[in-house]
Structures are given as structure tokens and as C-alpha cells.
Amino acid sequence: MSDIFSRIDHSRTADEVVGQIEALILEGVLRPGDRLPGERDLARQFEVSRPILRDALKALEMRGLLTTRHGGGTHVADVIGQVFSKPVMELISTHRKAAADYLEYRREIEGVAAEYAARRATPDDLALLDRIMARMEEAHGSGDFQHEADIDVEFHNAVGECAHNIILLHTLRSCYRLLSDGVFQNRLLVFTLPGAREDLLAQHRAIHAAVKAGDPAAARKAAMDHITYVERAMAQAERSGDWQRVSRLRLKQRAGEQETARRRGQNETGAATRESGKTTP
């Protein structure tokens, strides 16, 4: 991890270290699972003594913001995962209306995020978005659906970061967590539709271009149009999948009927032959 921590300018107390790490977590600079530098390096960046640093890290761990792994260092705790409790996540995964409501909510909130991103993205934000977009283009060329879907989520996360609104950022991250945790098992169905991967890539390009151009209205429209497309494509993919399931069952049933008829015909022929043998003088 590069030097993202600043020296403490005032009394160099544990509270000031705590406040700086809290702000980095809240602003989304430090993400769940990120590992903090070692104690010596971290104390050097803050320019505080190691006892002060230990007190700060202990306070953050007691508040559930950091976690220490034996032999594995200090990491940012999984604070985002706690937005949706496990029972709620299980309910969402088993009710179709929840999936529809999820996309409806995402359409509105991502429209706002893209609009804010177009207004507020810094040159560094845009550089990060450029890199993610380039990786998405590369993944698209590879034909790896799972990798493409993972970068899709990363792209939307980055747009949320560009919006520079703390509440929006963490709300979006909690939404995307449902995807990364596999709550919506059918999310890859869209990628199987003819032409869908090309359409999705074009939509991400449109969002990216509008944010880079600083066009809030276009960015909002592009983001909302994207989710509307996903809604329709998901419905189509599910219908197509259901049609395929029914067609497969029909084929299996017809094949079974034909096999039964064939065997019945063989049995009748055999019986007739045996009967004919009995009556032959």
C-alpha cells in the first residue's frame, strides 16, 4: 500500500491517528479487507511513536473497524457486509420481487451517482476510471463472462467513488456486495444473450464518456438506460432459459414415448412370431 497516511501535525495523540484512519475508511480510500502497513512503517508515516500507534489501532479494533489476523497483519474490517444481515440476504436471494426491486433501486441511485460523478470527478478519479474501462475492454475480448462481470461491478463502484458523496458511496457498495456474494445467482444470464455483451460494453463506454466530458445529464441518462437494459435483458434471459428448460423436457418426453412405442412394437412382433410358430403344422 502506498503512503496514504499523513503525519500528525499537532499533539501526536492516538485520537488523531484514529480520526485519520476513520476518515480514510469513511471516504472509501481504505476498503474492507485492505491491509494496513506494518507497525514500523505506519508509525513512520504518521510520525508518531509506536505505543501511540498501538493504542490507536486497538481502539479501532475494539470499535469493529479494524481486525488483526494472527501472523497476517491488521486489516480493514468487513464493515460493508454488515449493511445487509445474512437472514435478509437469504430472503432477497429467494424472492423474485426482491431482485426486481434491487434493479429498480439501482437504476435511480446509479443515475444520481453518475450525475454527481460528472460534476465532481477529479483528474485522478478519471485516470482510475480510464484504467478500469481499459481492463473491461480487455476482458470483453477474452470472452470470460465471470471476469467481465467482476470488472462491471468494479466500474460501477468507481463511478460511485467519483461522486464524492459518502452516504451514496457506502449505499452503492452494499448493493454491489449482493452481487459479489452471489445473492443473485442468475446475474451472468445476461451475458449469454446474443449481442448482450456488446450492448453492455457500449453502455459502459457511454457512462464513461459522459463522466469524462463532465456532462451530468448525459451521465445520469446513460446510467439509468444501462440498468433499464439489464432489467429487460434479465427478463428475456430468464424467459429464454425457461423456454429451453421446457423444450428440453418436451424433447426428453417425446424421445421416451418413441422408445416406449419402439419396444412395444418389438414385443408385439415377437409375440406374433411366437404365435405363428405355435400354429405352423
Rank of each mutant, 00 (worst) to 15 (best):
T280V: 12
Q253M: 14
G277E: 04
M133C: 11
L179V: 15
L168P: 01
A98K: 04
R7I: 13
C162K: 01
F5L: 05
T280Q: 10
T280A: 13
A99C: 08
G81Q: 04
K86F: 15
L189Y: 07
R44K: 10
G143V: 10
T171P: 04
V211R: 00
E110N: 11
Q266L: 10
K252Y: 12
G241K: 03
D55I: 04
E115M: 05
V230E: 01
V48K: 00
E47H: 13
P281V: 13
A222Q: 03
A218I: 08
V76Q: 03
D225I: 10
H140C: 07
N267W: 10
R63L: 08
A118N: 02
I8W: 02
D152H: 02
L126T: 03
L249H: 12
V153D: 03
R187I: 11
D41G: 12
E231R: 05
Q146N: 09
A271Q: 15
A113D: 03
A118W: 00
V211S: 01
L65W: 02
R131E: 15
P123Y: 01
E198C: 13
R135W: 08
L60G: 01
L179E: 13
K212R: 15
K58Y: 05
V190R: 00
V211L: 02
A202F: 14
A255M: 05
V79S: 03
R31K: 12
T260I: 15
A210N: 02
E90C: 07
Q253R: 06
E22Y: 11
I25H: 03
